[in-house]
Design a protein around this nucleic acid. Structure first.
Lengths: 343, 343
DNA sequence: TTTTAGCACTCTCCCTATGAGAGTGCTAAA
DNA sequence: TTTAGCACTCTCATAGGGAGAGTGCTAAAA
């Protein structure tokens, strides 16, 4: 779509103004508020053009203009000026992350809370997750009788714990010995490798390996790691969700884990780490998100460990700020992941 | 407060009807809908009395009656008939829990989802949590260089993981040996015991014990275990929350972990396992919950491991069903906890 | 003494009408 | 190509006027 500079300016201003006021924007308002060096009639003519090419829309004949979804998309794709968060903000955030560097769970909680408060929207962060589960360490703890606690540590930092019941009671020494052997032999192995090693163990060891493999398979099935959410009440305060039903649908997607995983999976398939996806108004696919926009990014190490982060807000979202926040947090998380992998 | 049987009946019916319709209830409606053997005038007189003692309220002079908070409290305290969930429902739920018995996290997810769907409200479940952290097992996994993953298993099933950086690189064998010694010596010890044992270890062991103690202290500080939430969108669909701001405040309490912990802590202090607390309209203390009611119960083994569960909905909540659901789920969880402790 | 029929009265809710205000599109002049 | 001027359109806020639901009171009935 070819637009003159003036048309681009007006589109930008309409979007900017509408994001602030949530109201249709009139030609007069625009001229006065932004001291434009042209008359309202000129603005009206340009608006007419923009309406014809479906970037703007009139709620009714004699109202101001409102950006269409296509308008927002054009804006995000062509006009948005990459803003960056203020240095002080960035420093504060980085500092917070630095303080909680030992604990992955804390990063993620912090990330999701920073996103929510900076973008004033609902936010989500998925724990970093490897496509292939790689064994790192196994621990068996005798509980009582035949009940044993199995703790499985994977290379991506994921820890799976499970109670298992063995055929007979086994002493802690024996359990530790087996766990030690499995840990030493299988380190850095994937499921297939471990299956091949299975025959080297005695009956008990093979039983345990079977459970272990089942658990690893389960981890691999999960499309994403654990999902952290925050800021959902931010969305509720937006005026377009006063008729609460729309908001409910949007929040429902966030709550319903399977839907959310779908959304992330289908949006992120072709997204590189560092790349950003902006989903405006559900893009025809996500009925529940018709009133919402979602900004998603991938973080981590593309070779091994990746996760997704994003924010969800009304279509009328401050895209520049939201995008730069998402980008910034994604970068911070990527750094933390590679630091974790490298040390 | 002394009421005649007829007054109790009418109060009950008004509450019942109002819960269904969310509208003020008129004398005529009541007589017709419930085939009362009296005239609407009689009902009106009784309603007048109930209004005088502040159990009912008129939104405006010529409207029907609405229960006051006090009315609901009287109802819950004196009139409610303990209903139980249908046997088939109970069986289905029990069966689901039975299937996920190995995995504590799965119980809790299931519990919170059952509560939400059965009570059609927002629901919460906290992980079982011991007042005193008791050591069970320690594991140290060499990562790379001086970076070590510490996995700490406590008796209540809580697992804490953390990356720690040692003064120098240590081999996995050495780490396993130390972890093994600490595990053997400290099993079933609390922080004080472990602090006493500290001198029996070499410098490295003491360093690790210090970190371990810090971690245990952290666990003890936390008033509750992890909190699981579900069904928040259920609350949004209630008509009294159409003016979305009220709903926002209520959901905010659920989202804001510290507030929620406060709420649980202050409500649960005097509640035994098996007991149920019903908080109607914030009870003057919780400003954000003025439009809501919360039903909370404690589950687990009072001697060692307890957690809280509850539902949050509009004041106009189907108390009988909600209470029996909470009670039932609390019982199921208590059974699972004692099974876990006993096996 | 208690219950009930009858009735006037009150208040909300919904519908309609009306006018102000904001904003548009078009035309003709600059 | 831009702009001033103007008629026109549509929303929104406000007010008025039933209809309907429900009450409280009074007096009669049980």
């Amino acid at each position: 779509m070819r637009l003159t500079d003036r048309q681009k300016l007006i589109l930008t201003l309409v979007i900017h103004e509408h994001i602030q006021t949530a109201q249709p924007v009139g030609s007069n308002t625009l001229v006065l508020k932004y001291n434009l060096a042209m008359s309202s009639a000129t603005v009206r003519n340009e608006m007419s053009v923009l309406t014809e090419v479906n970037l703007l829309r009139q709620p009714h004949t004699s109202a101001g203009r409102v950006p269409t979804e296509e308008g927002y998309r054009f804006f995000v794709g062509n006009l948005i000026q990459k803003s960056t968060l203020p240095t002080t903000t960035r420093r504060t955030i980085t500092h917070q992350f630095y303080q909680s560097r030992q604990d992955v769970e804390q990063w993620l909680r912090l990330a999701v809370s920073v996103l929510a408060s900076q973008a004033q929207a609902a936010s989500l962060v998925t724990a970093p997750h490897a496509e292939k589960a790689i064994f790192k360490h196994l621990e068996l703890v005798a509980t009582r009788g035949r009940q044993v606690l199995m703790v499985l540590v994977l290379m991506d930092g994921d820890i799976r714990q499970q109670f298992i019941t063995l055929a007979e009671a086994i002493s802690q020494e024996r359990l530790s010995e087996i766990a030690g052997r499995i840990s030493t032999l299988c380190i850095r192995c994937d499921s297939a490798d471990i299956a091949r090693l299975r025959s080297q163990f005695d009956a008990l060891g093979q039983d345990i390996i079977d459970i272990l493999l089942a658990e690893m398979a389960l981890t691999e099935e999960a499309a994403t790691g654990e999902i952290y959410l925050d800021g959902m009440t931010n969305v509720l305060s937006e005026p377009e969700f006063a008729e609460s039903d729309e908001a409910r649908q949007a929040l429902y997607i966030l709550q319903e884990r399977s839907l959310l995983e779908n959304l992330i999976a289908s949006t992120m398939t072709n997204t590189d780490v560092g790349g950003i996806q902006v989903l405006i108004g559900g893009e025809g696919t996500w009925e529940e998100l018709r009133q919402c926009s979602v900004i998603l990014a991938r973080y981590g190490d593309p070779e091994s460990l990746t996760g997704s982060i994003g924010v969800l807000g009304p279509i009328r979202m401050p895209y520049d700020r939201a995008i730069s926040t998402v980008q910034f947090v994604a970068n911070v998380l990527s750094d933390l992941v590679s630091e974790m992998l490298a040390v």
